[in-house]
């Protein structure tokens, strides 16, 4: 391992030194820090993706990494999502721990074959573990059209062998990316681009090394009247709705931030349902075949008798994500939709 090449500078990029200096970091900087720390910690970790090296990635998340770690560990690939994801699988076979960047997660589609048929089955086929992470920006609201705005979790959710992570804040994002890199299973890591640089989400993170374990939900807000099960950007829309519901309706809404979608923290969901007996599931992804269907059925299996109302969901409309602000806002779930559904449930 000692033979792995180093970069041309030993100066860490500025945007991964904020926690060191005690400054608050954005969601994007938190992921950069996590990635950078894991690369320093473990020479087996390396990055592959389009424009990740010299340019530093479309969102500049890996800016300065190639100068520090060298071109060998931050590899600018040909435009070939299947090719470099497959190559990551081969490297994982040889004991490396690759982190694949999809420039936009929409572009993961060409790699669907290798991810589901090869990577997800490797351990089960007795071909060894696949310690790799496939990460990248997802989500709408940034007026980028149908091919730079999708959520991809449900394309992979039903594939045994994969893990799926979808953080909502800097602390979790850093802890989860580090846990994902250390995980011996393949992890799909979704980063909502609307969270990347949101100034109000900045957090001061712990100086010491920490991880957030995969597969564990987090209670983002305590409440007794109603549970909202959600993740990613929708955690923030749900928090906004919960504040209104408290002020205007006197409702104490509990918000469960799933953080990991696969494995799903069924125990946390059931515990919250048993506490509030009313459930709203909110996701930005489209409706049909969305994760709300699976969550609702799990509640049905495990906590049916605790329910005082039907399970509802707020989701995107079953439509590609449009470009025009009027159209996109119409298709994506909004805080107002959450308010309407929550009020219906509370009255039921």
């Amino acid at each position: 391992m000692a033979t792995i090449a180093q970069g041309t500078t030993r100066t860490k990029p500025d945007h991964v030194r904020k926690t060191e200096r005690g400054e608050a970091v954005t969601f994007l900087e938190a992921i950069s820090e996590g990635l950078f720390e894991e690369m320093e910690r473990d020479p087996r970790v390396f990055i592959l993706g389009e424009d990740v090296g010299v340019y530093g990635g479309a969102f500049k998340l890996t800016r300065g990494f190639s100068d520090y770690f060298g071109r060998e560990r931050v590899i600018d690939t040909p435009i070939s999502e299947a090719g470099f994801t497959g190559a990551a699988a081969g490297a994982a076979h040889m004991g490396m721990r690759p982190v694949v960047e999809m420039q936009f997660m929409d572009f993961i589609a060409p790699a669907y074959d290798v991810i589901t048929n090869y990577i997800a089955t490797s351990l089960w086929r007795d071909a060894g573990p696949m310690p790799l992470v496939i990460r990248g920006p997802v989500g709408g609201g940034s007026r980028s059209g149908a091919f730079h705005a999708q959520n991809v979790e449900m394309a992979f959710f039903h594939t045994p062998g994969l893990k799926i992570v979808y953080p909502s804040n800097p602390y979790d994002a850093k802890g989860l990316i580090k846990a994902a890199i250390r995980d011996d299973n393949p992890v799909i890591f979704e980063e909502h681009k609307g969270l990347y640089r949101a100034p109000h989400l900045r957090q001061v993170l712990p100086h010491e090394d920490y991880i957030v374990p995969l597969g564990q939900a987090r209670t983002a807000r305590e409440g007794k009247d109603l549970t909202i099960v959600t993740y990613g950007m929708m955690v923030h829309k749900s928090l906004e709705a919960a504040a209104t519901l408290e002020k205007e309706d006197g409702l104490a809404v509990e918000i469960l931030d799933l953080r990991s979608l696969l494995p799903l923290d069924e125990d946390a969901i059931v515990a919250s349902v048993q506490k509030t007996s009313r459930v709203l599931i909110v996701h930005e992804d489209t409706r049909t075949g969305g994760i709300a269907g699976e969550i609702a059925l799990r509640i049905n299996e495990k906590a049916f008798a605790w329910l005082d109302a039907p399970i509802l969901r707020v989701t995107a409309i079953d439509s590609p994500i449009p470009y025009a602000p009027t159209l996109e806002d119409y298709v994506l779930p909004q805080t107002a939709d959450i308010l309407t559904a929550a009020r219906y449930l509370a009255r039921y």
């Binding site: 299947a82 470099f84 081969g90 490297a91 076979h93 040889m94 074959d113 290798v114 090869y118 086929r125």
Partner: peptide, 30 residues
């Protein structure tokens, strides 16, 4: 598959194996 003897078994969508072997040898070269 048997890494001790250097055998990476195929999956049925065979084109994938070209990508996987490229990556395995990239790791060796690194």
């Amino acid at each position: 598959t048997d890494f001790a003897r250097g055998i990476i078994g195929p999956v049925s969508p065979l084109g994938t194996m070209m990508e996987v072997l490229a990556g395995a040898m990239l790791a060796c070269r690194m």
